[in-house]
Design a protein around this nucleic acid. Structure first.
Length: 751
DNA sequence: GACCTGCTGCGGATTG
């Protein structure tokens, strides 16, 4: 850290001295005694126009780390003509609004205009920027896409003088379709101004800095300056509570009672993993407050609630005078400023290590300890409980995630994405921008020198032909590619600008007020009951044409089914789970219930013979436990299917119905002896392979290729197979007779 | 038994 000078003086350091006098004055006016380490380290490389990646904890002043030197440079050598000087790209409109507030005072002092630009910004304000471009533009990827499509002729005038690009919350883009779109936009921006523009990436949760640097500057990651000062060691107070759900004990009621007793009176966040669970726990906590005649402090926050309701919750969280606890999904994970909370609770296993890290970052700033309570619910084990449910996977996965968090490991971005859906979007956008492109130009722009360089010429040609067959593209006699009828329709609708798909949703209206939206996974019928926005409703009317559901207050209800699939668990987490079953140590942060569940999990693991081998006979069926990630399990399962073997994936295990353990071992042996199959052969029979927005236009061949690249890991599966077979052969697999409706063999009820 | 994000249209030249 910078040495602090004699009290009352300015912060002084070589880096500080390089900043423009007016920037130094602004820092002095703020009363800052010193620059944070990341801010200090960023000054030189940003001023020198290098690509920079800044990885630092939440609230460590990352935005200032980028903008103190950027603004310093802009103040030192003002633009000699019109044009945006710096672009900030943020993933959320709310984040852009926040950052505008943070930049305003500095930029006002320096005479640098700051322009937010997203879907909620008034058209008149956008017109002003188009007329007199200058200063700093704060924009979403989607609005930048729209500029390329709708304002193609203005791109050079807007960005010709551009000196810096800043990407905030970089981790939220890595490995996603939206991230591929962002990379393409940054590349097209540089092509439009015909020179390289320095890029600065900001994030608090990066697993591998080198990967993130390569994402920021494809092909040039090694030359990106990495700034990752060690964070202040923060004390973590952690408790993992285990609850058993049975006919005699209601685990959710126990969790509700504990939350109610410990969170009332302070500000907290409770992450419940699904919107449906958010509604359910909000309802339980609200009713408890009513029963005990105290003011209700528990409010819901998730992506289907109206902007109004969500902003109201965020405002209550910022207001320190009244305690409030938000029950939420990942909506409150990211950097919107709500201040820090007293504690964070997590109901159910965290979906990933990275998500848990983000959530923890919300608690205990400014030297206070971070407080995290995790609640895990497991079903009572009876004689008829299937093997994969006996080993307490939820609890053990939670311990594995906490273990890896303490080791500072995060999931790397998902590899192998071809992003053909987003490549389709970018081809259509490129045609709109230039009024047509030749296949060679499109390939060179997007693939050859661009971010889709993993797509070869053969695949690109096949994609163009598929898009031609689907009516998105047509080719003129001179070779120029243009939009065909369907392509024209897609590009001319504003929904085109986002790289991700959205379901068609109904609007939920009560007493004239919009509560939010719902894409029902199950039919919604008049007269039905519903819990939404933390209250109970009766469905009065469903207007299928206007897509509106009218609600009136009611005394009963259940949360709606919001739909969605299962989450993929990373290889490393599954491997750690296996280790945890074999070890005997008990983490200190487990409560009595969790300790009992862990002991039971380890007992059952051994009793099922999983310590010796991965194969367990269960009645007439056999279960295979690879303890590997879901992409490896998909490869194994689909390879068996290709040999005519039926299988079902049941969380941790593959179930082979009507198969003996001996036969299962033979099958694994046969797989191991054969060469690794072509992943596309495995993917071909999968019925629903459309994962992304424009996948429906890819045609069967490319769709299969894209699906295989994303969901099936053949090399890792074939690397794992010899070990699985050797372990299975070492000992005769356990065969457990199946008992229907038996009584509990292990009573693990939590008092 | 998953979560989240986003989004058009609307002028140009001249004068004080």
């Amino acid at each position: 850290m910078t040495t602090s000078q004699v009290s009352g003086s300015e912060p002084a350091s070589a880096a500080f001295g390089r900043l423009h006098p007016d920037v130094r004055r602004w820092i002095w006016q703020r009363g800052w005694r010193e620059l944070h380490p990341a801010q200090e380290a960023a000054v030189e490389p940003v001023l020198a126009g290098e690509d920079v990646l800044i990885s630092a904890a939440t609230a460590s002043g990352k935005t200032e780390a980028a903008f103190l030197p950027i603004c310093s440079g802009l103040a030192a050598t003002p633009a000699d003509g019109p044009g945006i000087q710096a672009v900030y790209i943020g993933p959320l409109k709310a984040l852009i609004n926040d950052q505008q507030g943070r930049l305003d005072s500095l930029c006002e002092l320096l005479g640098i205009p700051v322009h937010p630009w997203h879907g909620d910004v008034a058209a008149a304000a956008k017109q002003r920027v188009l007329k007199r471009p200058g200063g700093i533009l704060l924009i979403t990827p989607e609005s930048l896409e729209a500029l390329f499509v709708v304002r193609a002729t203005k791109i050079f005038g807007l960005f010709g003088a551009l000196r810096h690009v800043v990407v905030d919350e970089l981790h939220s883009f890595i490995g996603t379709e939206r991230g591929a779109q962002l990379q393409s936009l940054l590349h097209r921006l540089e092509l439009a101004v015909r020179r390289r523009v320095p890029r600065i990436g900001l994030s608090a949760t990066l697993g591998d800095l080198a990967d993130a640097a390569e994402f920021l500057r494809p092909g040039g990651g090694a030359r990106v300056r990495l700034i990752a000062p060690p964070g202040d060691a923060q004390e973590l107070r952690l408790q993992l509570r285990g609850h058993v759900h049975s006919a005699r004990s209601d685990a959710d009621a126990e969790i509700t009672a504990h939350l109610f007793a410990h969170l009332r009176g302070t500000d907290n966040l409770v992450f419940a993993n699904s919107r449906s669970r958010v509604e359910q726990f909000t309802d339980r906590l609200t009713r408890r407050a009513e029963r005990t005649r105290v003011p209700n402090e528990f409010v819901p926050h998730h992506g289907n609630l109206s902007k109004d309701l969500r902003e109201h919750v965020e405002a209550r969280l910022r207001d320190r005078s009244l305690p409030v606890t938000a029950i939420c999904t990942s909506t409150l994970e990211m950097g919107i400023d709500i201040g820090s909370v007293t504690s964070v609770a997590q109901i159910g296993a965290p979906s990933s290590v990275a998500a848990l890290r983000q959530r923890l970052g919300r608690s205990g700033r400014r030297g206070d300890p971070a407080v995290l309570r995790i609640y895990v619910r497991e079903e009572e084990v009876t004689a008829s409980t299937a093997p994969q449910d006996q080993v307490r996977a939820e609890l053990v996965q939670t311990i594995a995630v906490v273990d890896l968090l303490l080791e500072r490991w995060y999931e790397p971005p998902s590899a192998g994405g071809l992003h053909l859906s987003t490549l389709t979007q970018q081809i259509l956008s490129l045609i709109a921008q230039h009024g047509g492109v030749t296949p060679a130009e499109a390939y060179r722009t997007l693939c050859g020198d661009g971010p889709f360089h993993h797509v070869g010429q053969g695949t690109f040609g096949a994609l163009l032909r598929a898009l031609g067959s689907a009516g998105l593209l047509r080719q003129e006699p001179d070779g120029l590619l243009l939009h065909d009828e369907t392509g024209e329709r897609i590009v001319n609708h504003y929904g085109f600008f986002a790289a991700f798909a959205s379901p068609e949703e109904y609007r939920l209206v009560a007493e004239g007020r919009t509560l939010g939206s719902l894409a029902p996974a199950a039919p919604v019928l008049p007269g039905g009951l519903l819990i939404f926005a933390g209250r109970r409703w009766r469905i009065q009317r469903v207007d299928g044409a206007a897509k509106v559901i009218d609600l009136t207050p009611s005394s009963g209800g259940a949360p709606p089914a919001f739909g969605g699939g299962a989450a993929d668990v990373h290889d490393r987490i599954r491997a750690r789970m296996r280790l945890l079953y074999e070890r005997t140590d008990v983490p200190a942060y487990l409560d009595t219930g969790a300790r009992r569940l862990l002991a039971e999990a380890r007992d059952n693991f051994r009793r099922l013979g999983l310590d010796a081998g991965p194969v367990v006979g269960w009645g007439d069926d056999t279960y295979v436990f690879p303890f590997r990630g879901d992409a490896v399990m998909a490869a194994l399962g689909l390879a068996l299917a290709l040999r005519g073997v039926r299988y079902e994936k049941e969380s941790l295990a593959l179930r082979l119905p009507q198969t003996s353990p001996e036969r299962a071992v033979e099958l694994l042996d046969e797989l191991a002896a054969a060469p690794p199959p072509d992943p596309r052969k495995l993917a071909a029979p999968v019925l629903d392979k459309e994962l992304d927005k424009y996948d429906e236009y890819l045609g069967e061949d490319l769709l299969t290729t894209a699906y295989a690249a994303r969901r099936i890991d053949v090399p890792a599966a074939w690397e794992a197979l010899p070990g699985l077979v050797a372990a299975a052969r070492r000992r005769t697999p356990t065969r457990v007779p199946r008992v229907a409706g038996g009584t509990a063999s292990t009573d693990s009820r939590t008092p």
